[in-house]
């Protein structure tokens, strides 16, 4: 077995290097402090083993420390948890969360219904070509867009069949934009 051929120093060196890597989130002097303490412990115990007439066994001692990753996880647990939140913080957090949820829902309804309306206008043009379009007054100071029951005869229709592709493309664009906004909102929920 390859493990048996490693010297105690190799084993310790490898373990502490792994540990150092997993402790990367600590400040360098804190990492150094942890490593130094464990190192001191290991050499102390090995010395005692030898003094008692036994063979120093670094691997057996390290077994008590557990896997470097798991040991490191305990040392950095306080960073992951962060500072304790101030009183009342939880209520604010809950409120923020529900506002975000409401916003998310409202955005979804608004965005997708706008896209659906545009799609509906594009499709309706085929069924009721006379009632769907964009009308503008001759001097351009007011326009009527969309689906009307009585076409405003006083105003000229400006788009004709172009309304179909334009509305379809707009519908697609609005739908995509809504999806994008929703995904951003979701990250903050």
């Amino acid at each position: 077995m390859q493990q048996a051929e490693l010297t105690n120093n190799d084993i310790i060196h490898r373990y502490l290097n792994d540990l150092r890597r997993y402790l990367a989130r600590l400040a360098p002097h804190e990492t150094q402090e942890v490593i130094r303490e464990i190192e001191s412990h290991l050499f102390d115990v090995m010395e005692q083993q030898e003094a008692a007439g036994n063979k120093a066994d670094a691997a057996a001692i390290l077994h008590g420390f557990g896997e470097p990753r798991q040991l490191a996880a305990q040392y950095i647990a306080h960073i992951e948890e962060g500072a304790p939140p101030p009183k009342g913080f939880k209520a604010i957090q809950t409120m923020k969360k529900s506002v975000t949820a409401t916003l998310y829902f409202a955005m979804a309804v608004f965005g997708f219904s706008a896209a659906l309306c545009l799609l509906f206008v594009a499709g309706a043009k085929f069924l009721l070509p006379e009632s769907v379009g964009v009308w503008s007054t001759p001097h351009g100071n007011s326009i009527v867009v969309g689906f009307v029951s009585v076409p405003p005869t006083a105003m000229p229709e400006v788009m004709g069949w172009w309304i179909v592709p334009v509305a379809a493309v707009l519908a697609l664009a609005v739908a995509l934009l809504t999806r994008k906004v929703l995904s951003v909102l979701k990250q903050h929920m």
């Binding site: 942890v34 303490e37 464990i38 412990h41 001692i61 008590g64 420390f65 557990g66 798991q70 040991l71 305990q74 040392y75 647990a77 306080h78």
Partner: peptide, 15 residues
């Protein structure tokens, strides 16, 4: 207890 429990716990008590 084991070494792996004691040392991180001492670290927390110190913090």
């Amino acid at each position: 207890i084991t070494e792996g429990t004691l040392y991180p716990l001492l670290d927390r008590l110190k913090r």
